[in-house]
Amino acid sequence: MNAQPVIETTDLTKVYDSVTAVDKLNLRIGAGEIFGFLGPNGAGKTTTILMLLGLTEPTSGVARVADFNSTREPLKVKRVAGYIPEKVGFYEDLTAYYNLAYTARLNGLSEELVMKRVGEALDMVGLSSKANQPVSTMSRGMKQRLALGDILVKTPRVAFMDEPTSGIDPKGVNEILDLIAKVAKEQGMTIVMSSHQLALVQRICTRVGIMIKGKMVAEGSVAQLGRDAISGGRYLIEIQLVEITSLLIDAIKRISGVTDVDRTGDMLVVTSGKDLRPQIAKAIVENNGLLVRMNIQSYGLEDIYMRYFREV
């Protein structure tokens, strides 16, 4: 994490009549990160994004984007931040080009720059051929891509994308995610992306945060989160052998760092503080064991997610 975060919240809280949508959120996201914002429905993801953009006022706490206070200087924030709302909408009877050009003009771009940027953005999201078609003729996926183009037009430092992949087929989702990853890389854009499609977020996010009931319950890279969540930070190594002998189990147990060995059928599950696969392999060979398969267990976001769900 960089010293100077692009996005920073301090005890950010939003209370609706009875619900606390966001509860004392402290979040720091550095430049160039793709931050996956996860959480069940009603967790407060959208609310957080809205507060960061100055589209709603926090009950208490401070949200800062690029060092601007989102509540007090919303215009400065909006100048550097792009936003794809949850249910993105365009002027349906206007063309794709005009919709983006409108955004560009609202950002005070000169007419020639408008043309250039909109052209580039449409190119990048692969909608050049549809530029002069009314948005109403576009499919959901195209609109989602257009929304991405809408962000690109203003070349923001930060982009907030609220479920940019919802309602899109798997292939389309992959395309969009690739696009996002590419754009983030090319333009050095910091991206905050909320989603429910865990496997996909996992693919491009450098970091994820899991929010439940307004609180950020976990934050970090997916792998780190998995370990933290499920095995308390330990590694689990699965070993499949032709024959399991107690001699072999003892040998493994003797390897320094191994805390536990469990036997389940023809499988052994080794718990350790670090990745001990080479040592374990050596021990098996030395004891004439016949190794079929050995792998270190990785945790999908799904597992992590379910885990946190169960907790609350």
């Binding site: 215009l75 100048r79 936003y83 709302p85 909408g89 365009f90 349906e92 955004t103 609202l106």
Partner: peptide, 14 residues
């Protein structure tokens, strides 16, 4: 209702 307001108001305008 069309969702354009969110986009509009996320631009740097009062």
């Amino acid at each position: 209702n069309n969702g354009t307001m969110s986009r509009l108001l996320s631009q740097p305008i009062y």
